[in-house]
Each structure stands twice: as C-alpha cells, then as structure tokens.
Design a protein around this nucleic acid. Sequence first.
RNA 1: GGCGACGUAGCCAAGUGGCAAGGCAGAGGUCUGCAAAACCUCCAUCCCCAGUUCGAUUCUGGGCGUCGCCUCCA
Length: 472
Amino acid sequence: MTLRLHNTLTGAKDPFEPLEEDQVRMYTCGPTVWNFAHVGNLRAFLFYDIVRRHLQVSGYRVTHVMNLTDIDDRILDQAMHAGTTIGEYTKPYAAAFFEDMAALRAERAEQYPRATEHIPEMVEMIATLVANGNAYVADGDVYYRIASFPAYGALSHLDRAGLKAGARVASDKYDKEHVSDFALWKKAQPGDEKIGAAWDAPFGRGRPGWHIECSAMSKRYLGDTLDIHAGGVDLMFPHHENEIAQSEAANHKTYARVWLHSEHLADATGEKMSKSAGGFTTLRDLIDAGHDPLAIRFFLIANAHYRSRVRLSPEALHAAAEQVRRLREFTERVNRATPADSEDAEFAHRIEQVRAGYREALDDDLNLPQGVGLVFDLIREANAALDADRVGPNNKASLLELIDEVDAHLDVMRAEEPGLADEVERLIAEREAARKARDFARSDQIREDLRTRGIVLEDSKDGVRWRRVAPY
RNA sequence: GGCGACGUAGCCAAGUGGCAAGGCAGAGGUCUGCAAAACCUCCAUCCCCAGUUCGAUUCUGGGCGUCGCCUCCA
C-alpha cells in the first residue's frame, strides 16, 4: 500500500507523490516567538514530526523547513512595553521553543529560518508583486490586490462574497482598495526604530506583513514548488490562502502540491486553546504538574488522529502515561528475554500481521491511533507467549524489529532512563539483604521510601528491577 | 448570516454496509512473603427520527447537541 495523505486542496486522501522521486520538500508553519508555545501549538509541531518521520520510514529524503516568526504586532507591542528590542524580546522564547521540542523528542528540521533574517528576500518578492500588478503601494504601505488573483479562496473553499461579509473589523486607518486586501509591507510607525523593527525598502522604510515571510523563505530554501505544506487548521485562512496568492502570482508555479492541516487541541472546557483568549497551558505547566514529557508526546500524537480535535485533561494524560509505561515495560521485557528453544510459527505469523497492519494504518493518512491499537493487541499476546516460554530467537528478533518500526514514530520506547543514583542502588542492595534475612518490615520500609521519591521496585525471578514513576 | 467538522462504553478513542479495535478507570481470578508487573475473565443494541437495503453505527434526508473557520491564532 502506498502513502495517502488528506490534501486540503482536494478534500481527499490523495496518493502521495513528490516532485522528485526520492526527495520531499516540506515547509511547516512554526511558532511566533512572542511567548511560550502552548500545548496546542506543540500538537501541530509534533504532527509535523510524525509526517517527517513517516516520510523517512517510507524511504524519502526529507528537507524540512520550519519558520520562526520573530516579528509581528504582538511582538512589537510586547517589546515596546518591555522597553527592549524585538531581537532581545524574542530571544528567550525562541530558545524555549527549541527546549520544548527537544523535551518532546521532535526531530530537528533541516532549517529554522527567522523572518527578521530574510527581509531582503521578502522585499524582493513584494517588489515583484508590485511590478506584476498584484500589489499596490498606498502611503508607504503595500497591499496585495486580491482582485488580481482569481483563484483566491480555493484552499479554504471560501468565496469572495463570503469573505466580504466576514470582513467586519477591517475598517481601519489603512487605505485599501478592497477590505480583504492584506498587507505585504507596513510603513514604519513612531517607535518602530527604537525596538529594531524597521528596514529600508524601495517602497519606504517599514516592516513586512505576516504572510510574506513564508512565501519568501520557503522559496529561498525549497524553491517555487513545495511537495508538502503543513500547519494548524486555523492557518488555512487567511494565512495559507495568502501565501498561495503571493507565491503563485510571483513565481507563476504551483506553490504547494499537498496541504496538510492538523486539528486543534481543546482545553478542559472543550474550547480551542488559544493564546489571545488567555488561559492556555504550556509544556512547562504540565511538567511542573508532574507529567512526563514522553506521556505528553504520546498523548499529542497517538491519543487521537491528527485531523480530529482532542481535549486536554489530566485523565487523558494519565491514560497516555500508562500506555507509555506499558510500551516501555514490554520493550524491556523483550530485550532481556531469554529465547525459547523453538519458534512459534503461529505467533510469528501474528507479528507479521501486526507489522503489516501498522504500516497500512500509517500509510492511511498517518492513522497512528489505529496502528497503536494493533500494537497493544500484540503486546498482550506477546506477553502471554513470553509467560509460556514460546518465544524463540527469531520470534524475539521479529518483536524487536516491530518495536523499532513503531518507535520510529512514537519514539517513547527506547528513550533512555536517567542513571540510578548510588544511594538508590545501595538501598536496593540493603533491601535485598533484609529480604534474605526475612526482615520484611525493613524491606517494605525501603521500598516505600523509594516509592515516595518516584522509584518503584519490582521483584522478579531475574532480580530486582526499578523504574521511575510520578512521585506522590 | 456564510462555510465546515464532529456526536461510538464512566473517560479517551479507532473503525466498517454483515455478529463494534485499542487504552484508561472499575470488578473478579492466577502468580507473589506482601506488592508490582504480567496473564485470564467481565464491562457498548455506535445522539434521536425517517428513508435506501436481505442487512446501517457505517449511505441519504430531517432534528437535537457540541465545536471550528469567516478577525491575530498551531
């Protein structure tokens, strides 16, 4: 089965075929670094991670570009209030973004271009649009002339009439030909110089509008036509629509062949989590509350399909943590298992069935939740087989291969444990001595002490094992 | 007002025109010094009403409900 992806442009699951046979050019909308990313933002970023990983699993070389928006109205406001430059203001949030991504085990993109470092590319594209008649200068501002691009609205399936009715709050200070014309360049305002938010351009000193950065930077790093462009659903209109209008008018080429949009994360009340509405949750908040980043990763990528809304709740995070624990327990068990003398042919067949089913689920528009369901089925069967000593060397090898294939997406099973503190090892040894002496009061005392510190001991016939859990 | 999505067990969730995956929580059991882990067993007439069909949770229409986009937003 070949990879099929739900393309917003066609509204269907289309077979995926990149322009070049083995190479995928992917552009994804990254964070605006005006604040910490909230968990909803991170869901989208981890969605990109799954796309990227599955493309690699499928044999493609992936060039993935994710932008950092380090100039926009909110950043200007904040820097102004803080009495600093936009560069200084955004620095910690950009750093926090990379920390969050690392904590969530997202693979790094090939490029993370920043808007403020690509002003010349943007100015050049805007100049082209003006020269082509797709944009006009109005008192130092430059606007995109939507009337010049008939295909406008094709992605979001909104027609012009609908847009006009929707443009409610657009009557501002600007002098636009049409209410839904959007800014490519904004004339410098008093105060912009002081915070480092103004650049020279043929149409006057100012700063870029939001949408132009993606068109300019994707062209710079990936060329005129992208294989995949991904983002959250809320970017579909107007952001992605505007990108298409800009890029296709400037380059006269198809901008992106496949558009992928991930659904929102909802807060506990069921409403979309959003920065502007206030009351959003960051990764830091969840970690401070005792949640394991691996569980958060699992929840965000595997609890629900990427195109369905998912609600953040402590219960859901707990369930995810339990699933991660089970996956990791299983991985360790298979790793240390002593193979049986003979193979179980029927079990071998089951492993292959699940491997095939898992691949099919992922190929079917990245249905990770379905794939994971199959894996849990097999884990139960495999545990039973291990209990009965029916897992031969080949069976074991197949299981390990399956684990690797699944972990190529999940990346939670092989994630390393922090080393044991010497003191903890000493306590385990002391408890073993107590148990041998049948001093169970002392032995239970030690186990309980460790438990309160977040370490669980398990006795087995192969010796004592430990693992970390949330302390209580 | 326009466009769109969704409604599956206590909770999360996948899925299909033919007896409804998986996880969490819960109940009982096996194992264990006690636990833990693991395993076994149990736990759903798929929002409502019509229609199409031999047969619908799955298709069509209507209703109710929730949410998203149309405005900065992953």
